[in-house]
Design a protein around this nucleic acid. Structure first.
Lengths: 223, 223
DNA sequence: GTCTTCAATGACTAGAATGCGCATAGTTGT
DNA sequence: ACAACTATGCGCATTCTAGTCATTGAAGAC
């Protein structure tokens, strides 16, 4: 998960970065508003944390810039206690959440989890569909409480499927996210790996979770 | 927009209800936790506002109950200033946002706008005509709540029809969009597939949705 | 007007052709 | 030895062709 922090106060910025690093997020820190907007537009972040009070470019303008570019990335804004009207404006300009300084680091982390969770539709921490559970932190996968061993690629594929439960995932989509490359029509790797996963996850169970949508792709779904 | 407020303090509850009424939201107020959960499960609200400190059932349990029922409705929780760990738990349990009491009514309204806006952008797609619904994200088609299985071409054709409801669609137009090729007069694929669709969608129903415009083409229409 | 006729258009069906997805075996690379 | 990928053939759902049957509506007879 990649996070961009735009915050001019070096002390606060470093404090946040350290805390996020510890939670093993990939963090970029930027102390300048204009440069920060550029980065937000160019890189595909999963979350933006923006201070509303910045020197070169106000946080509000960054917000508007990002939303005008139709980028849906969740944005959390930081404000001083006094700036009530500022954060109202911020929320109306497309921010998803705010935090008033000074804040407890636990609270920041909780809100980040909430925002990241919202983007995809899974539960906090472990992903769960029916009796199948995947814990991204430990890379542990279980079904019905029973441990399932997966290879790297199998795991990556399953995580992608679980993060988009109930949606049809086309081969190009899967290829892009799991193999990060353009889709080559003349290979059937995806089919093969779906087959591997089926053997380990659905084989012998009455309730199948991996469904094929003929002509389109695959879908993970409980019923 | 329909909002459910679960708040035991009559004064606060009425205060919120009045403010939301003024913004012309449809507001239900409930002072009991257990009853509130029932209402949340039975009615399709656009937003829930839940006080964490409730008598019969804690707000946290309501949260969990709603999320366990796989209801994705955005939830905003209300907490006292002191309960930092409570709201962390709340966010982790699936709440989308929180507000500490006492709060400015403007701020509540801003957060509600933010939450409602988010919901609408997440599910842009469900196409609906009469009791026929098509969800492009999941490729799910239902009529009167009943699931209908379609093949790829059938689905593509129906999606095209639904995206142009009430307009006459000629065979060349359909061919171009669904078969992406120039129209070949010497084939009757389109007629055949319209027939397939009719069997699955209109057959046995009093209200027909697929109409043929003799000499021109076809049209999807409710009446 | 109203019937009849008839050609054009669309509805429907059976079955042939296609090509998708599955499985498994084989190959490469670490 | 194991993971990652390629190659291949088979079964079958899907797609399409081709043919027959039904419906429509306009022209002509009365």
């Amino acid at each position: 998960m990649r996070i961009l922090v735009i915050e001019d106060e070096t002390k606060v910025g470093c404090f946040i970065k350290r805390a996020l690093d510890e939670e093993s997020y990939a963090v970029d820190l930027c102390e300048d508003g204009a440069k920060g907007l550029q980065m937000a537009l160019n890189t595909n972040y999963d979350l933006l944390i923006v201070d509303l009070m910045l020197p070169s470019l106000s946080g509000l303008e960054i917000l508007k810039g990002v939303r005008q570019a139709r980028i849906q990335t969740p944005i959390l804004i930081l404000t001083a206690q006094s700036q009530v009207d500022q954060r109202v404006k911020g929320l109306d300009a497309g921010a998803d959440d705010y935090l008033t300084k000074p804040f407890a680091i636990d609270e920041l982390l909780a809100r980040i989890r909430a925002l990241l969770r919202r983007g995809s539709t899974e539960s906090p921490g472990v992903l769960q569909i029916d009796d199948l559970a995947l814990n991204p932190a430990t890379r542990e996968v279980t079904r019905g409480g029973q441990r399932i061993e997966l290879t790297l690629k199998e795991y990556a594929l399953l995580e992608y499927l679980m993060r988009h439960t109930g949606r049809v995932l086309t081969r190009p989509m899967i290829s892009e996210h799991v193999w990060n490359q353009d889709f080559d029509t003349f290979t059937n790797v995806i089919d093969v790996y779906v087959n591997y996963l089926r053997n380990k996850i659905d084989r012998g169970r009455s309730k199948k979770l991996i469904h094929t949508i003929r002509g389109s792709g695959y879908m993970l779904k409980a019923d």
